[in-house]
Amino acid sequence: MSRILGIMMVTFFGALLILSTVDFSPWSDPAQPAAVHVSPRYIERTIEETGIPNVVTSVLADYRGYDTLFETSVIFTAGVVVILLLRREKKW
């Protein structure tokens, strides 16, 4: 039962993915919307605004630093969950 459901879900997913790919802009097009709307500012102004040449770092920790805070919290959560579930010690 769940097997059939699983296969149905895989098929559905696949159909959806194929449907959606049809009107993607060609791969690595420099003029695709993703490349021209938000990200240029990060590249062009990272040095004057944050002084960090590695744009990924500056976006990661500054422009979108809030996401990274939660990313770290996810790691924290995972660690804490595993401790809660597995660890069997009298004194830590």
Binding site: S73, V74, T77, A78, V81, L84
Partner: peptide, 13 residues
Amino acid sequence: YVLLEIASFSAYG
């Protein structure tokens, strides 16, 4: 998405 994952992870635990 990230927050959804936070909520889900803590829910799993």
